[in-house]
Each structure stands twice: as C-alpha cells, then as structure tokens.
Design a protein around this nucleic acid. Structure first.
Length: 935
RNA sequence: GCGGGGGUUGCCGAGCCAGGUUAAAGGCGAUGGACUCAAGAUCCAUUCUCGUAGGAGUUCCGGGGUUCGAAUCCCUGCCCCCGCACCA
C-alpha cells in the first residue's frame, strides 16, 4: 500500500539524483552488500541485509560523508539454468513455484529461457528496492556472467592475474555424476538427494585365495573389531582386475570404480552363496574370519560386501544375532551353528555413555528386533557413530593405537592400511541421489579440476593480516574470520555448465558462482563510466591501470581506443571510493564468500585497497518462527510493502534485531508502529515554532536528557546497532517528550522546535519518507536525507538538572505509593520534610568510603555531625551500606518550584517543611528522599 | 568433538566487558483507571511475593568461590543455538 507520499519522495530523490554518488571534496563512505542471486523475488531476510546498508549509508551521508551504496544482480551458476530447463519441460513443481511467487500465468512460458530470468527478476527486484526507499546509485548496477561482457572481462582479468601468481591450479575432485547424462549432477538437477555430497569410503581388502574380497567402510578404525564378513548369498558378485589386483565386488561397484581413477576389467562372476562358510583374512588385524550371509548387503552401496564389527555397528550385531538364533538358516547354507555362535563382538572403543559394546547396547535400548528394522538401525548407527567418533578412544585391543582418540586414530589407521596395500579408497554419494533423468547418481573423480589455492599458507598469513586490520560490526565476528581463514582449503572454482564467465585459458570451464564475486565491489566504482565502451577494447591492461595503477593511461588509450577521459575518470573514481568501508551480509556468507573476498583482495590489491570493514547479521524470523518456504512461513518484501508500505516495513525490520543474532519480524509491531509515526508527524508539524518564550528549569532538563540520549544514538548508528538507535532515539526520546509536555503545560518554542528537528533527523535514516514529509512541512530547505546530522551538544547536558528531575519523580512515586499501600482514603494533604543539613554533611563526607568504621570516623570529625551523635551513629552505616550518595541539591527550592506539578500529579495539596509533624516524619527524611506525612 | 554465540522477571529483549545508583531499561501482552454513547486510538497506573506509610522477602540455568557488596568477576556442572564446506 505504499502511500502516494512515499512514492512522491522516491520520485523526488530520483529526479534530484540524491543517491548518485560523485567523487567530491568530502570523505568517501562506500558500503555494499553481496549481490543477490536472481531466481526469485526478495524475501524479508535478504531485504534486511540490504536495508542495513541503506540505513548506514543514509546516516553517514547526514554525518557529512559522501556515501555510495551500489547494487548488482548475481546470475552465475546452475539454479537459473536448471529451473529454466524445468519450465521448458513444463515440470509442474517448478511452474507452481513461479505461480506462488505471483508471476502472471501468461508470462510463465518465458521462463523457459534462462536469460529471461536474468532480465525479469533484476528488474522486479529493483522495483521492490526502490519502493522500499533504498538510496542506491542505480547507474552502477549490473548483472554478472558472460551476458554482461564488461563484467566478463573483469572476471577474466581477475583469473588471469590469480593464475600469474600461481594461486590457481589443477587437481582432482570428486563430484556427483550421472552416467547416463555423462555430467555432474548439481543439486538443482536432482530428483532426489539435494545436498548430498561425495563421501570417502575406505576400501578394505580381505585376502581370499589369490584375490581380495573388498568391503567399503566409513570407519576404518574399527578394523580391530572385525569378526566376520557379510555377503548376500543370492547376489552375483564379479571378479575384476583392478589396477593389477583381482577384486571381488558387486557389479555396480565395479562400474563405479572405473569412474574413480581405476582401470577395471571384469574377469568372472561368483555367487555370494559360494563364499559362505569360507574364510578370508581381515586387513589390519591379519586374522582369519568367517564369511556369513546377511540381508543388508546392497550391491548398489559400496562393494556389496560388508565387514562385520558387531561391537560398534548395530547392523552387524543384529545380523549376527539373527543368524545365531536361527539354526535352520545356518543349515540351509551349510554352516555349523556352533561355529557361527563362536563369533563374538570384540570391544575396541570406549566412548562416552556406552559400555564395551555400544552396538549391542543401543539395539537393546531401542528394542531393535532384527536386521530388517532398517529405520531404527539407521538412527542407532548415527548415534553410535557420533559418540564413537567424537568422544571415543581406542582401547587396549587396538595395538599401537590404544589410548588414542578415535578422531585422530581414524585417519592414521586409514593411511597405514592404504600405505601397506591393505586398503584403497572409493567414493559414494552421502545419500541416495537420483538424476532428473531417473538414473541413480554415482561419484566420479573429475580430473583437471581447477582450484583456487586458499589452502596456501603464505596466502593465509596475508589474509590473517587483513582480518586483523578490519573493523567488524559486531566485533565478535573477527574471531570467526580468523578461524575460517585457517580452515579454508583449496576451492574447486570451475563447473562444467551453468551461467558465468568462461575460464580464460580453458574455455570448457565456467567459473563457479562463489569465485566470480570476490572483488567486484571495485567494479562498481567505474562501471557506469565504461558500460558503453566496446567490451572488446577493455583489455587486461585497462584493468591493470584502473585497479592497480600500472601502465601509462595515454598509451593505453591509444592502443585500446578508449578515450583517455574515460580512463582517467574511472581511475579517479576507483581511487576515490576504494577500498570499501563496510560490506554487510548475512552470517551464512562468513565461511565462504566474505572470506574469499578477503583472500582475493590481499592477493590482487596493494594493502591500502584491502577491505576496511564487514558487518554481519542474523536471519530474519517471522514472529519468532524460522522462515521456511516449505512450511509456508515466509514473506516477500513486496508482500510486506503491500500491507504496510515502505516506512513501516523499514522500521519493523530495523527494530527486529541487531548484531549476529537472528532478528525478528514482529507483526504486532508492524501493525501498530505506523500510527505512532503518523502521530509524530502530526505533532511535529503542529507544534513546530509554537510555545512560550521564557526559559524554565524543565526546559534545561529536556535539553539535557535529549542531548545525552543523542550521544548514545549517534554511537549506535555508527556501530550499525539500529535497534538500539531506535530504542533510544525514538522510544526513549518520545518518553522524555511526554514527560516534558506533562511537566510544562506549554513547551518553550525554541526547545521544542529544536527537539522536533532532532527527533525527525534521528528517524530519517530508518523512515526517510515520513521524515522528508515532516521536513517539508516544517518549511526546511532541501532534503532531510542530505541534512546535517544532529550531533549532540555536550554543553547542554547538565547532569545536576537531570538529577533534580529524578528527585521530583522519586517524590511523586513515593507519594503515590504511600497512598496506595496505606490505602488512605480521601487523602487531602501531604507534608514534606527535606533532610536536615547534618545528613547532607554526612553524605558528602563519606561519599568515597566503603567500610562503616572509617566512614564513622570521618563523619564524626564534623562538628555539625557530632551534634547529632546518637542519630548519626545509626544514620552513617545506613548511608554507607545502601550507597546513599546523591549530589547535594537544594531540595526545598526544587520542591517549591515543582509544587504545583507534583500536587496536580498526585491529587494532593502540599506543604513543604512545615512545623506540623504529627508522626515525626522529619526524622525519617534522607537526602534525596524527603520525609512524608499524608492525611 | 572442534570453533563461535548463548541461558535475565508472561513473551521479546537490554544490562554483564569497566561489580554498588538493579526488583533489574524498553517493546509486546495482561489488569485497573481517565477519555468516549460505545469501540478503537491516546494518556495514566500496576504487572516476582507479601505489605493499611514510602518497606520487607526471594530472584537473573544449577552448584561453589572472591568481595563490605555479584545478573555482572573466578571455578564447576547442565542445557540451547550456529558452522564444520565445494552450495547459492
């Protein structure tokens, strides 16, 4: 429902180019956000991050900086392409998603073209952001990928430079792969198994005659507990020549291995049944173990053979248990039941919460009845694995690994087995993945995969230096960045398909979406100047000049044909704006994008162009519930604005939270805050330049308290603590205002007018539309968006005056409480007695004393106090223990002055310091707390 | 398990770094009152327990300690959230 008022101001800002930032004498302030991926409309969450950038830019602008806030759109990667493909195939689910977004049905077919997405959503997104009143310099806006040749050239430059520095290299990389499509299967291209990734298994080799039975294990450390081998009697396994050895595996496994750097040649087949009752040699322990039948060997998982560790694997325990309880089955397969029953679990790991045989225990605990209770067994497996891995230690049965943490032993054991030729490696998807073509996916090792070498230790060192120099909002995330820099490893930076920039020296690769977006903040600084230049002329030496200051602009201009003017101006903009001051983002990007940004900057730019600051925020919750599209708990920015308009949406978002904790969209707040803003608008416009001329004490109080608050508010804005800024800058100030108006029937003209300006300016970064409207109605020149910030006037902060007013409030509270508690009916008159001088003398004397004894000594030095020796002896301990140390004021004068007000507030007549004292209340008076008698 | 952040009065959420002015801001909700024909909005008061004189008692996840004094500092236990990747 954006009001026409909001639209009006948005148009005026645009017409006046208020947010089109141009280098000037002023100090630059450059804030930006990670550009959003454009496969839909903006949700409240993203909008929150963007809005924080807008608010800080608006604040800085008022603070006197030349603020730049640019925006762009990210289209790199596969989701858009895949979604478009789905639309082309008229897939119901995808079309439903678009419909639910509110896309008109008739244009949905257009979405079968990925390019259409990159045009439609940025355009719509831009509309939404404008409607929210975002102060973006839209001249600098661009989209990514080769669809934008200028950006394309920029990313190519970046990668060539990285390669020159040997920070990009080749390696191998496992990916989820479809054998039918002969391509990797990204999340988007999966019918099933989103989020699943390649997982490494240790392939254990069990000597069996002249060949090896192979079993895939995720827990190589449990080799010490192997008791037997499981096969599926009904399954036909293959004997295959793999890298010169003969392996026995399932047929699908042989196929998979051939995609994982192994030469596989199938020689023969062998039925599972033929293996039963025979033995093989278990690796790691070199022990002869029995081959037994089970129902859980899956030819499509691992090798189709499973090594059995009944102590720690619930499946194995149940398999063994079932068999030992079933003599008939044993007979069927010609197994000696006694022989089978002799197979017993071996204790190998001691872990928190479990005895020697965790698998046995958990099966009992969960009442698992057989090896076919798959669901519970999966749960049990997870739990045992977790506690075993994280809390377990290898026990005495584990040879030289005894006593070692499982976490450490695991890798060592795995490596020893591999080095000793007793094991190999294979990959499987971490869960079931099915390609859209209905083929189950496998893992393929892609060779010649390009990596960015974030694992490089020298590079890390430099990145740490940058992390250390930067500012963070909030500061707590600094540690997180240091941690991520250490933890980050080489990053596969190319993909075989999707939108993006081609890897310049190996054109079959597309640069992946997190890798083409690490230094583009620099691109904002001059994009508006070069976007009409023929992209073919923008060569590396152009970027070398603009970004690194290399080369001579005149000769570059000559060689490329780009006008020297454009080159010079672009360079000037870059040097003026860069480095950026703050990049603000959701916390999800800390561990990848934000850290990549640091890495790439320190590699490519000189130190003075390294990022200066990061701001990180949490997720937006919806009325305390986590947003989740699938559960229907989500709100598009445009939906919020339809209902509440821009300013209310803005203030609700900004009041929702700050810092790295999740913030909350409070619908109730949104429902009510609009009318409060309107009330402020009405008040401001009606009251401005009205009121009395003379100055009263309460005017000074109001100015004191407003300016004191302003100190905090300004600091809160600087720290990007916008919730606090609102709390103090709006709610607290409004409370003071109410008190002020109550206290003096008519406000002072100057004081109230100043306040109206201050309050409006304080709100301006967050609710700019209504503030512009007020500003105009106050007949102020120009936009409030460009007005100077209301810096606190420290001279107006008078702490004594603030204390005096606290005293008055205290007296009113006491009066009210007495009437209430004592249930005095028809109370008529209050008699107030201020503390006697000698009590003040005590307070002043013992102000810095902490223990009663020395306070007593000190106070008793005073003649005046000594005169009240007996009373003083009681009074002094009380003062010290209860820390009654107010600054001395003339309470009688204050009460006289405030008499009418207090009297009116409490509905009692008053008499101050009268002789009449029927209940001896005069003695009860304390400094800061007069004695009171009411009748 | 590792790394990070937490556990505050009905809910949300300040305070904690720099111990005392903290029964503990503010918002929301609730209750009472004013206004109103009425509702809403607005304003005032109350909202841990007890209390016919401004007070007292018990509180800031549990336990212990330091201190004249602890929500705040130290030790310890329990619990919760986020991340642990190749994905935008």
């Amino acid at each position: 429902m954006n009001s026409s008022m909001e639209t009006k101001w948005q148009k005026r800002w645009e017409d006046a180019g208020v947010f089109e930032a141009v280098p000037s004498e002023k100090q630059a302030f450059f804030v930006n956000v990670p550009y959003p991926y454009m496969n839909g409309f903006f949700h409240l969450g993203r909008s929150f991050t963007f809005l924080r950038a807008d608010v800080v830019a608006r604040f800085k602008r008022m603070e006197g900086y030349n603020a730049l806030f640019p925006f762009a759109f990210h289209c790199t990667g596969t989701p858009i392409v895949a979604a478009a493909q789905r639309v082309a195939e008229e897939e119901e689910k995808q079309i439903q998603i678009l419909k639910e977004m509110g896309i008109p049905e008739e244009i949905i077919p257009e979405f079968s073209d990925p390019v259409y997405w990159t045009e439609y959503f940025p355009e719509e997104g831009k509309k939404d952001l404008k409607r929210l009143g975002m102060g973006v310099d839209w001249r600098r806006t661009f989209k990514t990928t080769s669809l934008n040749p200028h950006y394309d050239a920029f990313v190519q430059w970046q990668f060539r430079r990285l390669k020159d520095m040997d920070l990009v290299g080749l390696g191998e990389h496992p990916v989820i792969w479809c054998t039918k499509c002969k391509s990797p299967v990204g999340d988007h291209a999966r019918l099933e198994g989103e989020g699943e990734t390649p997982q490494e298994f240790t392939l254990l080799k069990f000597r069996f005659n002249d060949s090896y039975l192979m079993a895939a294990s995720l827990r190589p450390e449990t080799v010490f507990g192997q008791t037997n081998m499981w096969v599926d009697p009904d399954l036909e396994y293959v004997k295959a020549k793999v890298n010169g050895e003969t392996w026995i595996v399932s047929r699908p496994c042989a196929e998979k291995l051939s995609h994982q750097n192994k030469a596989v040649e199938i020689l023969d087949t062998i039925k599972g049944e033929e293996l039963l009752g025979k033995t093989c040699i278990a690796p790691g322990i070199d022990r002869e173990i029995l081959i037994l039948p089970s129902g859980f060997c899956d030819p499509n998982k691992g090798t189709g053979l499973v090594t059995s560790v009944p102590s720690d694997a619930p499946d194995d325990w149940m398999g063994l248990y079932d068999l030992q309880e079933d003599p008939e089955l044993c007979t069927k397969y010609g197994l000696d039941i006694e022989h089978v029953r002799r197979v017993q679990p071996i204790a190998i790991i001691t872990s928190k919460g479990w005895g020697d045989f965790p698998a046995v225990e958990i099966c009992k605990k969960m009442h698992i009845e057989s090896q076919y209770d798959r669901e519970n067994l999966e749960k049990a497996k997870k739990e045992i694995y977790k506690s075993g891995f994280y809390t377990g230690r290898m026990n005495k049965n584990c040879g030289k690994y005894a006593g070692m943490k499982v976490e450490e032993a695991k890798d060592l054991i795995r490596q020893e087995l591999i080095d000793g030729g007793k094991a190999d490696i294979m990959y499987e998807p971490s869960g079931h993945v099915v390609c859209r073509c209905l083929t189950p996916s496998i893992v393929k090792i892609v060779k010649n995969q390009w990596f960015i070498k974030y694992g490089d230790s020298l590079w890390k060192e430099k990145a740490h230096r940058a992390v250390e120099k930067m500012e963070y909002y909030p500061e707590t995330v600094r540690k997180q960045f240091h941690y991520v820099v250490d933890w980050l490893n080489d990053w596969a930076c190319t993909r075989e398909f999707g939108l993006g920039t081609r890897l310049p020296w190996d054109q079959k690769w597309v640069i992946e979406s997190l890798s083409d977006s690490t230094i583009y903040m620099a691109f904002y600084t001059f994009y508006q100047l070069i976007k009409d230049v023929d992209p073919d002329t923008i060569t590396d030496e152009v970027f070398d000049y603009l970004l690194l200051g290399k080369g001579d602009p005149n000769s570059i201009a000559e060689r490329t044909g780009i006008s020297i003017d454009i080159l010079r101006k672009s360079k000037e903009e870059f040097d003026y704006w860069y480095p950026f001051d703050v990049r603000t983002s959701g916390k999800d990007l800390v561990q990848n994008h934000m850290t990549f940004c640091i890495f790439n900057h320190v590699a490519l730019f000189p130190e003075e162009k390294w990022p200066l600051g990061f701001a990180v925020n949490g997720w937006v919750m919806l009325d305390m519930q986590k947003m989740s599209t699938s559960r229907g708990i989500s709100l598009f920015l445009r939906e919020a604005m339809d209902k509440y308009g821009a300013d209310t949406t803005r203030i609700t978002l900004m009041y929702g939270g700050e810092g790295i904790d999740d913030s909350n969209w409070d619908t109730q707040f949104a429902d009510t805050i609009g009318s409060k803003l309107e009330a402020w608008q009405d008040f401001a416009v009606e009251t401005y330049r009205t009121g009395r001329k003379d100055i009263k004490y309460i005017d000074r109080w109001f100015e004191s308290v407003v300016n004191a608050t302003l100190v905090d508010v300004t600091e809160a804005y600087r720290q990007m603590n916008f919730r606090t800024a609102l709390q103090k800058g709006f709610f607290d100030m409004q409370r003071y205002l109410r008190w002020y108006l109550r206290r003096c029937d008519e406000p002072n003209n100057q004081v109230i007018s100043d306040f109206i300006e201050i309050q409006t300016k304080v709100l301006a970064p967050i609710v700019p539309h209504v503030c512009e409207e007020i500003w105009e109605n106050l007949h102020k020149e120009g936009f409030i968006s460009l007005a100077e910030w209301c810096f606190p006037n420290h001279e107006k902060i008078d702490h004594a005056v603030i204390q005096v007013e606290e005293f008055v409030e205290q007296v009113i509270d006491d009066l009210q409480e007495i009437v209430r508690v004592a249930k005095i009916e028809n109370a008529q008159k209050a008699y107030l007695y201020t503390a006697e001088d000698w009590k003040w003398e005590v307070v002043n004397l013992v102000r810095n004393e902490r223990d009663v004894k020395s306070a007593m000594q000190k106070a008793m030095q005073s003649e005046l106090v000594r005169q009240h020796g007996k009373e003083a002896a009681k009074f002094i301990p009380k003062v010290v223990q209860e820390r009654i140390f107010p600054q001395q004021i003339n309470e009688e004068d204050v009460l006289q002055e405030a008499e009418d007000f207090i009297s009116c507030e409490v509905g009692l007549k008053m008499e101050i310091n009268p002789e009449y004292d029927p209940q001896n209340k005069k003695k009860a008076a304390m400094p800061g707390k007069p004695g009171i008698y009411i009748e």
